[in-house]
């Protein structure tokens, strides 16, 4: 809005309507009523004759348009420009830009996922330990394991039988051997099923009770033989000669 000045006052008011401040302001231009009216008439007539702005020729605009196009060439429309416009809008703050949000979500997932993964592994380990313990409990040797061995090697089974007979002859004063019964069943004729109970006295840690010095395990219930091979030199010779 243009600031009103003394010319507006002259055009809008009559001389008698002027207040003292306005008369003082206009004193330099028109002190008397006659001068005031002459000035007013002239200004109003000037407003009448002021012509409308001239309309420029279209060729001027065309020339300016081409100049504008040269000065500000439009970027070639590339598909990723439109994509970037959506995912990286310039007018949005960084934390509201879709690309940043997606990256943040991915980073969060990448940081948190290993924790979930490690928990799963720990559970698996624990389960494996439990199963192992369960397997170890029935350590009391059953004939099944021996049976498998004998089936695999019939020669050694026969030798075992021979050994068994020789051992039967030899008495062991320190241990009470309870040799298992031979199975009377027809299918199990050659199978030797035995179990041994070793008295508490006989238990010696780290020493072998097998006639050949073979270590049979550390379980207190699984030692099969109580007499060492060293004590019976005849048997030792026999065994070494055989092998």
């Amino acid at each position: 809005m243009m600031e009103r000045d003394y010319l507006d006052i002259i055009k809008e008011k009559e001389f008698i309507e002027l207040n003292s401040a306005e008369r003082a302001e206009l004193a330099e231009v028109c002190a008397t009523e006659e001068e005031f009216n002459a000035t007013k008439a002239m200004l109003l007539q000037v407003d009448r004759i002021v012509v409308e702005p001239i309309t420029p020729e279209p060729k001027t605009k065309e020339s300016l348009d081409s100049l504008f196009a040269q000065t500000y060439p439009k970027a070639t429309p590339i598909w990723y420009n439109s994509v970037f416009t959506v995912i990286v809008p310039k007018h949005k703050p960084v934390y509201r830009q879709p690309l940043v949000q997606i990256a943040a979500a991915f980073l969060l997932f990448w940081m948190v996922f290993p924790f979930f993964n490690s928990n799963l592994k720990m559970e698996d380990k624990q389960l494996a330990i439990v199963e192992k313990k369960q397997e170890e409990k029935p350590v009391v040797e059953t004939a099944e394991s021996e049976e498998a061995q004998t089936n695999e090697n019939p020669i050694s089974a026969a030798e075992n039988e021979q050994e068994h007979d020789e051992l039967q002859e030899a008495e062991t004063p320190t241990s009470t051997l309870v040799f298992a019964e031979r199975s009377s069943a027809p299918g199990f004729a050659d199978e030797l099923v035995f179990s041994a109970i070793v008295s508490e006295d006989e238990k010696t840690e780290g020493s072998s009770t097998h006639p050949d010095g073979i270590f049979m395990g550390d379980s207190d219930k699984t030692i099969a033989f109580g007499q060492s091979a060293q004590e019976t030199s005849d048997l030792l010779d026999l065994l070494t000669a055989t092998f």
Binding site: L7, V29, E35, A38, T39, M42, L43, Q45, V46
Partner: peptide
Amino acid sequence: LFYATKYLAESLK
């Protein structure tokens, strides 16, 4: 402006 206005008003009175 005062001068021009006064001059023109006087010339065209």
